[in-house]
């Protein structure tokens, strides 16, 4: 197995504001979002981080995408540290989340060129890549329509293709199908499977069991910022449905607290 990602004991603590304390119903000033988390992912697989909301999945992915720094620990992507070699890491990943958006004012065509340029992709290469990708995902039909006038599905397709302008090896995808209608969700899952076929590594987070069962090769279960189980899908399931198995694990972990 060719290991492409190694996460080593990352932790992240946030300071809560008074308002956040109320929302979280806690009097603690600090919230441990990620607690000494370690896992690895192999080249060419889809690795799923599964956990309830607030478990620390998004924080983990943000650390991998170098948007935030871990308090302790490090992660090495394709040989580069997310703590010390952020620019190298960024040039090798695509990071997709509903929080990262495309500017409404521009067209997919313009934005593809813009991001290809920021990634330093040679123009001829970018143009060819754009042609192929736009055709493959049907973006050529609305390539000159401003993002603000696109439907949610079109926007999602455009975001995905534009994030791949520099042909990264690793795709980090936070909640790939959240808030999407069934058709768009299907496009996204098909896309992820296709990317795996092309040999790309995909790290995704989700709380949807069916998505994990359908797509993921290996799964890490995160509860309260800690990795409770991390193995192949089959090994995790242990002969049960993923949902049943998850709640079994969940009860074991939470049982001690309640």
């Amino acid at each position: 197995m060719d290991e492409i990602l190694r996460v080593e004991g990352i932790s992240k603590t946030f300071t809560l504001s008074k308002k956040q304390q109320k929302i979280e119903r806690t009097t603690l000033r600090k919230k441990v979002a990620v607690d000494n988390l370690s896992f690895t992912a192999n080249r060419g697989e889809i690795f799923g981080l599964l956990g309830p909301n607030g478990a620390g999945k998004t924080t983990t992915l943000r650390i991998l995408a170098t948007l935030i720094k871990p308090d302790t620990g490090d992660a090495v992507l394709d040989g580069y540290s997310v703590v010390n070699e952020e620019e190298e890491v960024r040039s090798r990943i695509a990071f997709l989340t509903s929080e990262l958006k495309l500017e409404d004012f521009f067209t997919p065509n313009y934005l593809f060129d813009f991001f290809a340029r920021l990634h330093g992709v040679p123009e001829a290469e970018a143009a060819e890549r754009k042609r192929v990708m736009f055709e493959r995902y049907g973006i050529d039909k609305f390539a000159e329509v401003k993002v603000q006038n696109l439907s949610t599905g079109m926007k999602q397709k455009a975001s995905i293709v534009i994030s791949l302008a520099h042909n990264p090896d690793i795709i980090i995808f936070d909640e790939p199908t959240n808030g999407l209608d069934v058709l768009t969700a299907r496009t996204v899952t098909d896309f992820l499977a296709e990317m795996r076929q092309q040999g790309k590594t995909i790290i995704l987070s989700t709380h949807i069991f069916s998505l994990v069962e359908k797509l993921c090769d290996r799964v890490g279960i995160i509860i309260d910022g800690r990795m409770t189980n991390c193995d192949t899908l089959d090994a995790i399931r242990d002969g049960m449905s993923l949902e049943d198995r998850f709640f079994e694990i969940y009860k074991t972990v939470k049982g001690g607290e309640e």
Partner: peptide, 9 residues
């Protein structure tokens, strides 16, 4: 949209 820029190198 600025976060999208921040994940580029």
């Amino acid at each position: 949209t600025i976060a999208t820029l921040l994940v580029t190198p």
